[in-house]
Write a protein that binds this DNA or RNA. Structure first.
Length: 581
RNA sequence: GCCCCCAUAGUUUAACGGAUAAAACAGUGGUUUCCUAAACCGUAGAUCGAGGUUCGAUUCCUCGUGGGGGCGCCA
């Protein structure tokens, strides 16, 4: 039998093949093999129960028939339990063989987890220019980057695109404020983005105070969109200043984009959207605006998707349609993943429906469209943290605070380190903690912002995982000369902790494929945490450097794989590791 | 008005319709002559309410309660 990276597939095909020639199992038997509770075994197959229900047979009898029909196999033992579950206990030799074989998870994942590599565009982060990123912006950036890394890890071709909000109505007000205050954008001091933000606030206040200010701000926007040189030049400078501040954060987070085609990039492509949608009868004029309704949909039959405003201006919907078209046409995207706040779910549902109608009218292939949405970060009042109310916490402040807290711990534990080394470690630990805190819970959940939640360094946190890696590294560092050759001579896992760790290693492919299927990084986090937990127990109970060569060999092998899997997994999450901490 | 999301130990979370609901933090009691105590080993503690579907429900359906969000010119 072919040895699979995801060994549940081995068990599954084993069951399916046996069931094929078995009475009562006709008509599509799905074994449903998944990791079992340790008390029962390593894997369990639940599929007999629903089948028994369908055929009206006794599930325990059916399970017994299936077990009896299984060919003899040294790799695992099958047994029946409960109402008709089949439990599989893997043999120690099988585990050892698996662990020996899969020394390169990235290589294995490429061939095993993905049938056909795809061209995937991931649209994430996407902040608005002229404003600073605040804590509310962290989710799209962290989740998007992590999904991008996962896709790459599994062999897909990924394009990361930062769809900046750089053509919105904020520029009317901002340009008006700049001109009214006679501000030079070349002399904004040490924190230019903060200056722009306060100018924007002033501008907003003025436009609320009197009509004439509002009119002037509107005029600035119209002039900008009409291509007035002065306004374009200011706009360009604002964008540069914004990009500088974004890049400072992206550098800290280790995020890089292939493109940052913001909304402005598509400003000359919106007319084509109107033309096409009108031509194919997808949109219509309604109350002066151009809108799309979907009569077949219970809600969007009446809730409009506005693609051109009454005043003839484009909006978010228009640029998104133009963007989608561009990505399909120019990049040949086979899948597009949008990572945004859940409040935009209606928008994306409408966008996707509209696109499908448009593309099918032109016989264009519609890429697979996925809206990967996440919950909102809330303030103490249970409402979204927003720029306009009060002072939201700047993202850069959150990250710096994380580094500082980690730095205090590093210094405390290693007083002898140089300042540079403390800083280097503090960045990896502190930023890892923040990323993990966000990634480790289901992305669809809202959560209330809390320093202690985001910056925790004990328990189920990134530093715990990093610590496990550092301890493994330490073992190999302190190993006597030539001891690594013992890895060639190993016995099978026997002690409870060896077995638990070995078994957990085998589950890595399942964690990857589940994360890939659901596009939810918290599945990977949970797995990595459990792996690190099993390692820590093992480490505390079973000494690696022992006299007995086969025992030492096995334990070194377990350490080696644990480290590889932890590092690969953390890398997918965008979290770095350390040799020492 | 229509629609969407959420509700699990004191707190923050996990559980692809499966077995005795899993962790972390905070409690509490232990473990460093031993490869890093950012650790390990104990201990205590929970599914919002009422119905329903199912062999089996935290998970699916209905109703209710509570919190948040979206819906004609923001993104």
């Amino acid at each position: 039998m072919k040895f699979k990276f995801d060994c549940s597939e081995n068990i599954e095909s084993f069951l399916v093949q046996t069931a094929e020639s078995l009475e009562g199992f006709e008509g599509g038997f799905e074994p449903q093999v998944r990791p079992a509770d340790e008390r029962f075994g390593d894997f369990q197959a639940n599929g007999v129960l629903p089948l028994a229900k369908k055929t009206g047979r006794n599930p325990r009898e059916m399970a017994q028939d299936l077990i009896d029909a299984l060919p003899a196999c040294d790799d695992w033992e099958a047994s029946i339990a409960g109402p008709g579950f089949i439990n599989f206990k893997l043999s120690s030799d099988f585990m050892l063989k698996w662990i020996r074989t899969f020394d390169h998870p990235e290589k294995a994942a490429r061939s095993a987890l993905v049938e056909e590599p795809k061209k995937i565009v991931i649209d994430f982060s996407s902040p608005n220019t002229a404003k600073q990123m605040h804590v509310g912006h962290i989710r799209s950036t962290i989740i998007g980057e992590s999904l991008a890394r996962l896709m790459v890890f599994c062999g897909h071709k990924v394009i990361r695109d930062n769809h900046l909000g750089d053509w919105g109505t904020q520029f009317g007000i901002l340009l008006y404020a700049i001109k009214r205050e006679n501000v030079s954008l070349d002399a904004l001091g040490s924190d230019p983005i903060a200056e722009l933000e306060s100018l924007y606030r002033k501008g907003t206040a003025w436009t609320k105070e009197d009509e004439s200010s509002l009119d002037k701000a509107r005029k600035e926007l119209v002039d900008l969109q009409a291509g007035k040189a002065e306004n374009l030049e200011l706009w360009k400078k604002i964008k540069d200043i914004s990009m500088d501040s974004f890049h400072a954060i992206y550098d800290m987070l280790g995020v890089q984009f292939d493109f940052a085609h913001g909304e402005s990039f598509y400003r000359d492509r919106v007319d084509e959207v109107y033309e096409c949608l009108l031509k194919h009868g997808v949109c219509k004029e309604d109350d002066g605006a151009l809108v799309v309704f979907h009569p077949e949909h219970k809600r969007f039959a009446k809730q409009p998707f506005i693609i051109r405003k009454k005043d003839g201006a484009s909006n978010y919907a228009t640029t998104d349609l133009a963007t989608l078209s561009f990505r399909e046409e120019e990049w040949k995207a086979e899948q597009i993943i949008y990572v945004t706040d859940g409040r935009q779910r209606d928008h994306f549902e409408q966008l996707f429906m509209t696109t499908r109608k448009w593309f099918s009218a032109e016989n264009r292939a519609t890429p697979e469209l996925s809206h990967v949405w996440f919950g909102t970060i809330l303030g103490e009042d249970n409402k979204a943290i927003k720029t306009r109310d009060g002072q939201p916490i700047k993202l850069v402040d959150l990250l710096n605070e994380a580094i500082e807290r980690a730095g205090r711990m590093v210094r405390e534990k290693n007083p002898e380190l140089t300042k540079d080394e403390v800083t280097r470690r503090a960045k990896i630990i502190g930023l890892g903690a923040v990323k993990y805190a966000d990634l480790s819970q289901d992305r669809t959940l809202d959560y209330v912002f809390s320093w202690d939640k985001l910056l925790a360094m004990q328990g189920n946190t990134a530093p715990y995982l990093q610590y496990a890696v550092a301890r493994i590294s330490s073992i190999f560092r302190k190993m006597p000369e030539g001891a690594d050759s013992s890895i060639l001579e190993t016995r099978a896992p026997e002690t409870p902790h060896e077995r638990a760790l070995a078994r957990k290693l085998l589950f890595f492919p399942l964690a990857l494929s589940q994360t890939l299927r659901e596009l939810k990084p918290h599945f990977l986090c949970t797995y990595l945490y459990e792996l690190a937990t099993d390692f820590s127990s093992f480490y505390n109970h079973d000494k690696v450097m022992v006299e007995d060569r086969p025992t030492q060999g096995l334990r070194m092998l377990l350490c080696l794989r644990t480290k590889t899997f932890l590092c690969s997994g953390l890398d997918i999450l965008g979290i770095e590791t350390l040799e020492k901490m």
